[in-house]
Design a protein around this nucleic acid. Structure first.
Lengths: 147, 147
DNA sequence: TTAATGTCTCTAGCAACTATAGCTTCAAGA
DNA sequence: TCTTGAAGCTATAGTTGCTAGAGACATTAA
């Protein structure tokens, strides 16, 4: 059995995060030692590694919750899991597109900065006047959802 | 003079957001009408448009605060503004790199989904076992700061 | 005049943690 | 066995950048 610290080290997750996951029901309530400390077995380590990996891939906790409940019932069709992954892929793709447009705009700003005074600074100028931008692509903040 | 609603419409910013910006000191305290409603002039509209545009480009409010104070002193060197913009550019570039790695991984996942049962589903399997991943690039969540 | 809309303040909520305070438990060395 | 330091416990509050709601007041159009 692992203590919470060992579990965290094994899965690459910080201790308060594990307690947080338990609190929101992503991990089951842990068994306790005689001294009230949490103890974990391999099953929780696997589950936590799953969560950690999915978080790394940008899945939201709600999506992970769904994926976990799917994996808890292995006889079902995997269409739902596939759907979640495809939605995630689409979101990642759209974020890449947006960020690429931002990058181009920032590069333009930075390259054109003369290194002189603020009054002539291209960075400040472009930020103050959107019409100086090459594209409008970054005018859609609603697509910039947090991962 | 503009009411807060007109200002918001003109700058493309929601009304509560304007009040929030005032609250955290990004916008100065507004003049008030006889009936205690906020009134704004062109200067605030410009400032708000600046903020909006910088937010669209992914700058954090703290960076915007710095940029605004820079733009308030037009005789200074613009090196600081340049530095902020370059930092932003670097962050955007690193996010693109990370997202591109994620995209590859997610594509692999969905391509390999056989459409069968969960028990054999690659989506679940890959998420449960990081060693099945093609890359380790998504193991750096500290670069995934919220925009 | 009345109704509809806009604005006011204040508080609470969101995601996904992270940090702090003040306590208890555990493991290892002297 | 005692002691010390690390690790664990709970509970609460803070983070970022807003957004939503309640209940009251102001303004404007018909």
């Amino acid at each position: 059995m692992l203590t919470i610290g060992k579990l965290g080290a094994a899965a690459g997750v910080k201790v308060p995060t594990i307690r947080y996951y338990e609190q929101i029901g992503l991990l089951p309530e842990a068994d306790r030692s005689a001294g009230n400390q949490r103890l974990y077995g391999q099953a929780t380590l696997d589950r936590l590694a799953f969560i950690r990996h999915a978080r790394d891939l940008g899945f939201r906790l709600e999506a992970i919750r769904d994926l976990l409940s799917l994996s808890d019932s292995p006889d079902q069709s995997c269409a739902a899991a596939d759907t979640i992954a495809r939605a995630q892929l689409a979101e990642v793709e759209s974020r890449i597109l947006r960020l690429t447009a931002l990058k181009a705009e920032l590069e333009r700003m930075v390259v054109q900065c003369s290194g002189g005074r603020i009054a002539n600074c291209r960075v400040i100028e472009v930020l103050g006047d959107h019409s100086l931008c090459a594209t409008d692509d970054h005018r859609h903040p609603e697509t910039e959802a947090t991962p």
